[in-house]
Amino acid sequence: KTELCRTFSESGRCRYGAKCQFAHG
C-alpha cells in the first residue's frame, strides 16, 4: 500500500476499512 486513500484522508473513515487497497496512514 503506497498510495494514500483519499476517502480516509478527507473524511477519516473508509467503508473498505482494512480491506481498502489504499493506505490509511
Rank of each mutant, 00 (worst) to 15 (best):
T2Q: 03
E10C: 00
F22G: 13
Y16S: 09
T2K: 03
C20D: 03
K1H: 02
K19Q: 13
G17S: 02
F8Y: 10
K19W: 01
F8R: 09
F22Y: 13
F8C: 03
L4F: 11
E3W: 00
K19F: 08
S11T: 15
T7F: 12
Y16P: 07
G17Q: 06
G12S: 05
R13G: 13
E3R: 04
Q21Y: 06
G25S: 10
R6C: 07
E3S: 06
Q21G: 05
T7K: 12
G12P: 00
A23T: 09
R15Q: 14
L4C: 10
R6S: 07
T2H: 08
G25V: 11
K19H: 10
S11I: 07
F22E: 12
T7I: 10
T2Y: 10
S11R: 09
C20K: 05
R6Q: 11
C14V: 03
F22M: 12
R6D: 13
G12R: 01
T2M: 10
K1V: 05
C5Y: 01
E3Y: 12
L4V: 12
Q21V: 03
Y16M: 13
E10I: 08
K1L: 02
A18L: 03
T7M: 15
K1A: 07
C14W: 00
Q21T: 04
L4Y: 14
F8W: 10
G25I: 07
T7E: 15
R15Y: 14
C20L: 01
C20Q: 01
K19Y: 05
A23P: 09
G25L: 09
Q21M: 07
E10L: 03
A23Y: 01
E10G: 07
F22N: 13
G25F: 07
C5W: 00
T7Q: 11
T7C: 06
Y16N: 12
C20E: 04
R13L: 14
K1P: 00
E10F: 00
R13F: 15
S9G: 05
G17K: 01
T7R: 09
E10T: 14
G17R: 00
G12Q: 08
C20M: 01
Q21D: 10
G25W: 05
R15E: 14
C5T: 07
C14D: 07
Q21P: 13
R15S: 12
C20S: 04
R13V: 13
G17W: 01
G12T: 04
R13S: 15
S9Y: 08
T7W: 06
T7N: 14
K19A: 04
S11F: 13
S11L: 11
A23S: 14
C5R: 03
A23Q: 15
G25K: 03
K19T: 15
T2E: 07
L4M: 14
S9V: 03
C20F: 00
F8H: 15
H24M: 01
G12I: 01
A18E: 15
K1D: 09
G25Q: 05
H24K: 02
K19I: 01
Q21W: 02
S11G: 13
C20N: 00
Q21F: 05
Q21R: 06
S9I: 11
R6V: 08
A18S: 04
R13H: 15
C5K: 06
G12M: 03
Y16T: 02
F22D: 12
A23F: 10
F8L: 08
G17M: 00
R13A: 15
K19D: 15
K19P: 11
E3H: 12
H24W: 00
S9N: 11
T2P: 01
S9A: 06
A23H: 10
Y16L: 10
R6E: 15
T7S: 13
L4Q: 05
F8G: 12
C14L: 00
S11A: 07
R13M: 15
G12V: 02
R6I: 09
G25R: 10
E3K: 06
G25A: 09
A23G: 08
E10W: 00
A18I: 06
R13Q: 15
C14G: 05
Y16V: 10
K19E: 14
L4W: 03
C20R: 02
G17D: 01
G17F: 00
F8P: 04
Y16K: 00
S11V: 12
K1S: 05
R13P: 04
R6T: 12
F22C: 11
F22S: 11
R13T: 15
F22T: 03
F8Q: 15
A23R: 12
T2L: 06
E10K: 08
G12D: 00
E3Q: 06
R15A: 14
R13K: 15
R6A: 11
L4E: 11
S9T: 11
R6F: 05
A23D: 11
A18Q: 06
G25C: 06
G17L: 00
C5V: 01
A18G: 09
Y16I: 03
T2I: 14
E10P: 04
Q21K: 11
G25Y: 10
E10N: 08
K1G: 06
G17P: 09
C20A: 02
H24N: 03
L4S: 07
S11Y: 08
F8E: 14
A18Y: 02
K1M: 10
K1T: 09
C5P: 03
R13E: 15
Q21C: 04
A23W: 06
S9K: 08
R15K: 12
F8M: 13
C14A: 03
T2G: 11
E3D: 02
A18H: 05
G17T: 01
C5D: 09
